[in-house]
């Protein structure tokens, strides 16, 4: 899924590289607010988690399987800034230690999967959360919708980059239809898995889910007197 070397021309790669540097710089500042001096160990461990879950196979049937991309998941679980940092570090490690994704395409990959993936995920998540009633059971739903949106939007951003610096003479319409069609499907899978993972964390440790904090803050302590239970 990573963009390799030579797929986009040099100016586009350099431009996305600049976007990535700016985005990660902002995220470094923002993550200090989310995690203060815990940033390094926490973001490091969450990055290791994202890396590991990307290797967790979800069977689709007929011998094929998919895996999580994790942009929206990271945004909901640890917050957008830390999420961008985690995804970016994962992509950096994959490029340098696993030769997955070209080094000149690193900026493109960080922009697409780190910044657009996490950013769009967080915005959609917040929007859906505003529209739905504040209940913990709806946090996974909002996370699922966010994941559903991130994958096609990231694909669309790629098509946009491809229109500027694509190195293959394929008609843009064809690229758009193929990318979008395929990624809407992937997005559905991503949505289901993200929702399931978030719901399993919310069930056990809702306090760890960054996106659930406003809901938890709004929750009132309920005192149930035992008059009807006392029998």
């Amino acid at each position: 899924m990573h963009v390799p070397d030579g797929f986009l021309d040099v100016p586009t790669s350099v431009a996305t590289g600049a976007v990535a540097v700016a985005g990660v710089g902002l995220a470094l500042r923002g993550a200090r607010r989310e995690l203060d001096d815990r940033t390094a160990p926490m973001a490091g461990l969450v990055a290791a988690f994202v890396f590991a879950t990307q290797m967790l196979n979800f069977p689709v049937g007929a011998g094929t399987s998919g895996h999580l991309l994790g942009g929206a998941l990271a945004a909901v679980l640890v917050g957008p800034w830390t999420g961008v940092l985690c995804l970016s570090v994962v992509l950096l490690v994959q490029a340098l230690l696993f030769a997955d994704g070209g080094i000149t395409a690193l900026g493109t990959n960080i922009t697409l999967m780190g910044i657009v993936g996490v950013g769009v995920g967080w915005l959609v998540f917040r929007l859906v959360q505003k529209l739905l009633p504040k209940r913990t059971s709806l946090v996974p739903v909002a996370a699922g919708v966010a994941a559903l949106a991130t994958v096609p939007v990231a694909a669309l951003t790629f098509v946009l980059l491809f229109a500027f610096g694509g190195q293959a003479p394929v008609s843009l319409g064809a690229v758009l239809t193929a990318m979008l069609g395929w990624h809407v499907l992937i997005g559905v899978g991503e949505a289901v898995i993200t929702g399931l993972v978030v719901s399993s964390v919310v069930a056990v440790r809702p306090d760890l889910v960054h996106g659930a904090r406003p809901v938890l803050a709004a929750r009132r302590l309920e005192v149930r007197t035992d008059t009807e239970v006392s029998a």
Binding site: D37, R38, P41, M42, G44, L45, V46, A48, F49, A52, T53, L56, N57, F58, P59, V60, G61, L68, L77, V78, V192, I193, L196, V197, V198, S199, S200, V201, V204, R205, L208
Partner: peptide, 29 residues
């Protein structure tokens, strides 16, 4: 896991993995 019906189980493992990773991060810190 063989088909999408089994996803909830795998997803719960991923959720548990997140909690363990996060808590490990706190302990490391």
């Amino acid at each position: 896991a063989r088909n999408p019906k089994h996803w909830p189980v795998v997803a719960r493992s991923a959720g548990a993995l997140f909690i363990r990773s996060y808590e490990r991060g706190e302990r490391v810190h």
